[in-house]
Design a binder for these strands. Structure first.
Lengths: 166, 166
DNA sequence: CCTATGTTGTTGTGCTCTCAACTACTAGGG
DNA sequence: CCCTAGTAGTTGAGAGCACAACAACATAGG
């Protein structure tokens, strides 16, 4: 118990600020998307990943990985998005177990409509408050945390090759 | 539309890494607390704030603010925590509308039991992956983001007095 | 071919959260 | 005193999520 690796004062303040800031940020993004586009952030991400895929089409497990969702969560999400007509399910000839999720034209239109407001929110809530040089540090921190928590999701940064001195 | 302030490549990569890392971090913390202590992170925070208050007692609205919850969320949470016997409601003599939430002995015991594992998770998932100097930067970033999104929650950093040169 | 094991995806249950509506009270101004 | 605003807190309905159980299929080894 008392031999636990407790947080010192600086770590404690940092953790509480990070927790409060993250919560405020994600709640506001969710609220903005729900209000202006009728979807939560998690669904927006699903549409984004599909829109970046060849033929707007991905296997469920791959989409789940890219969108940072569990299989269960994605399955529920696709059910909902299909009801809205933004995504369609297609079965998979190569693998009898598999299924594809496909972005529809309506889904792409919804994404196109939602994007500007969402990006503006991300900018004003996250990037505008930052100082010079913070972006690079924040990126390195986030990638390190992600690599520690979910190595399978980390975007391998050119393994074996370091950026030049500058 | 096209005149929106889109993200450049560095910002895009930073945002996606931050999003993925935060999600992975909070989901793992939630999972760990739920598994080992039978409560989600949000409830843990309620218990923490109560345990730090005089007489383990806070007005609902103040507890909501400190725990970063809406009134509604806190009310539901306290209902649940009261069912578990970890928190009790007391009415407020000074204000007929008001109510106090009070931490019980059982609640404190639950918190005491949950704390070491939770702190260990925070350390291993967030602080261990950081490099020297990252904590200070992360703290500044988090406080800036919080101040932008929720000025009412920001922990005013000695207003009017800057730290010395070093 | 047949079986054992792993993978893919879905579903149902229960919990937490949001949102809006509501009650009950306080505070301030005529 | 009365009336109007504003504040404190609760509630109910609906949405998203985690978890575990499950069905269907693939794959590898004999």
């Amino acid at each position: 118990m008392s031999d636990a690796r407790w947080l010192d004062e600086e770590e404690q303040a940092t953790w509480r600020a990070f927790l409060a800031a993250s919560r405020a940020l994600f709640e506001e993004l969710d609220r903005q998307l729900q209000r202006d586009a009728g979807m939560p952030l998690a669904y927006y991400e699903v549409l984004v990943r599909l829109s970046e895929a060849p033929d707007w089409r991905l296997r469920m497990h791959e989409l789940a990985r890219l969108a940072g969702a569990s299989r269960s969560r994605l399955s529920h999400a696709v059910t909902r998005l299909a009801e809205q007509g933004w995504v369609a399910r297609r079965d998979c000839p190569e693998d009898g177990r598999g299924a594809y999720a496909v972005l529809t034209e309506d889904g792409f239109a919804a994404l196109r409509t939602a994007a500007p407001g969402h990006v503006e929110s991300v900018r004003s809530l996250l990037f505008d408050p930052l100082e010079d040089g913070d972006v690079a540090v924040l990126r390195r921190i986030a990638e390190a945390v992600l690599a520690a928590a979910r190595p399978d999701l980390a975007p391998l940064r050119q393994p074996g090759r370091e950026p030049p001195i500058a």
